[in-house]
Nucleic acid binder design. Structure first.
Lengths: 343, 343
DNA sequence: TTGTAGGCGTTATCAG
DNA sequence: CTGATAACGCCTACAA
């Protein structure tokens, strides 16, 4: 359709061979004479030439595309990671973005797409699920991707046979539970997210474990979506009940934020009427009031690490699993006020 | 490097010609016999064949890549737009993401990159600046992109000769100013963002106009970055002054959120000690307390529109500029309390 | 240092 | 409907 300027045009205009033109526009350093070099550069500039990245990729047999697939780019958790990954990818290649909107088929589709695009690397972020069949298919697709020359890393559970950045969800949630109990909280509820999400499940289990350590248990466990609205809705349900726990743990921060909205909407107050804690420590938390108790994950580091695992490291070594641990951060949302009973 | 399975492999295995294999795997509908079709499909499946998108793009002379360039994918304003654009792109192609981190050279670089990638379309979002030289270079680069067969649209000021989605910044800010004055606010300050950003400048001017309509003027105008931290810092500076205005307008919501943090940090309260208003109505606002008065822009629509302008519309018609207007939304952050003086 | 020519994986044209 | 074969735009031995 458009007036594609090709390298041949440049070569002709500069009065040199295609090979020479190619060498100066791309190839190795100064294997070409200064005279010709200038002529080619000038011609390219005059014609407004830009190399066709596809043709280059075909000829070279590889590309500089890095695929990033996330569930939802609007979710702060993922956008932080994406931004961090972007920072390491940007100097070396282009980034192709895929968002699954939490649909499993999309995950699969994107892996295929990335393979078709000969992406040199793939970073996939998001919790694995309890769906064994899907997980297997995913692992197979990634294996094919790797077999065809790409490198892959995932942020999440270590289920796909790739390099992985693995948040210590269980341990973090456990630490949080004991810390909350030690703060003096006595009755607990959990907004547990989807039953099928391993991240959600692990955090729930870790939290329960931690409570058990202190001789407590969760009075209520509600499942909902892993989103802000999921948290809002579960908390609303919880508040509609006869009795409410003194402290509620939402398995991630966005859910906790939704939960706080539900509390606020009912004219209740955090932490006086109900304490709330989250998980992740997304940057957004700087601006929620009261400040939210949570388990801090080094999200930026995680994004950077995943990206550099697939880009920097020599591909010879065997796969690595980097565990990142979460650190409990107590803030205002769980401060125990001097209020009478426990419930 | 990897064991690339090529179409030739598939053809050989199926015992058909390369052309036939190509036809069934991609090309036009059912020009190929059922027998052969099945054989090819089977062979492709067995071999785990995936078409090389680059080779296809080279052969076809076009690709299905859509480029999206935004200043910062972590900023809610841009991530909403990105998500909306993604939704319309996803069914038809891949999305290549570029983030400029507010650096001008990056904007330019990405346009070139998109051209190299033969992107069929390009959506660029972000305010234009007062830098005429850079704007001209940008316009030229985009013209080249278009000349080489791509379509382009921008969300922001109409300075690049492309289809554009143009927020009515001035009018929105003006309406906001009059509304605030009518609410009873008497003294005003503006966190005006960078002097060089047209979006920031237009909103400042519109706001000033609106105040003038009511016989008021801004007592303080502070410039800082167009970010949450920029708002925080400017507000801190403002609060350090001898006297503070009763109402502060931050030229976008993230700045307003930063400003609220600064207020909170000093133990002051919104709106009792100082009222605050923003601009954009980003989704994040659902969770800020007190709720923030702002000017609502239909961000999702804007993202969708930009994407569909470059994808759906027939390329024959002349360029369009769609103006989207902002609607003032008064919320708690500017509720006038029954407090004595104005300052 | 420069040019020639073959090849990268697909698509598309044009005869059978 | 099928199969050679010429593009597509570029890279890269290999030869000059």
């Amino acid at each position: 359709m458009g007036s594609q300027v090709t390298l041949a045009d440049v070569a002709e205009r500069a009065g040199v061979s295609l090979a020479t033109a190619s060498r100066v526009v791309n190839g190795s350093e100064r294997v070409v004479g200064a005279r010709f070099r200038e002529r080619v550069l000038a011609a390219a500039a005059e014609l407004g030439y830009t190399a066709n990245a596809f043709a280059q990729a075909v000829a070279r047999g590889r590309s500089d595309v890095v695929g990033l697939v996330v569930p939802d780019i609007q979710d702060p958790y993922f956008s932080v990671i994406a931004a961090a990954a972007m920072a390491v990818v940007e100097p070396r290649g282009e980034m192709m973005l895929g968002t699954t909107l939490h649909r499993q088929e999309q995950e699969l589709r994107y892996i295929t797409t990335m393979r078709a695009r000969q992406a040199q690397a793939l970073v996939m972020v998001g919790s694995r699920t309890t769906d064994a069949a899907h997980t297997r298919r995913l692992a197979e697709a990634i294996a094919e991707f790797v077999a065809s020359g790409g490198r892959a890393a995932v942020i999440g559970q270590d289920r796909l046979g790739t390099d992985t950045v693995l948040p210590q969800n269980r341990a973090g949630a456990k630490d949080l539970a004991t810390a909350l109990a030690d703060q003096g909280h006595k009755t607990f509820g959990v907004l547990a997210g989807p039953k099928t999400l391993l991240t959600a499940r692990d955090r729930l289990e870790g939290f329960t474990d931690g409570l058990a350590r202190r001789g407590r248990r969760a009075a209520v466990v509600l499942h909902s979506e892993f989103t802000r609205d999921g948290g809002y809705q579960a908390m609303s349900d919880l508040l509609d009940r006869r009795s409410r726990p003194g402290c509620v743990f939402a398995v991630n921060d966005v859910m906790a934020i939704g939960a706080m909205a539900a509390v606020r909407e009912r004219g209740l107050r955090v932490p006086d009427d109900v304490a709330i804690a989250g998980f992740d420590d997304i940057p957004t938390l700087r601006d929620v009031a009261p400040s939210l108790t949570t388990v801090r994950l080094p999200l930026e580091d995680m994004g950077r690490m995943a990206a550099s695992m697939v880009l920097d490291e020599q591909s010879g070594d065997r796969r690595r699993v980097v565990r990142v641990k979460g650190e409990v951060v107590i803030r205002d949302s769980t401060m125990v006020s001097s209020r009478p009973g426990s419930s």
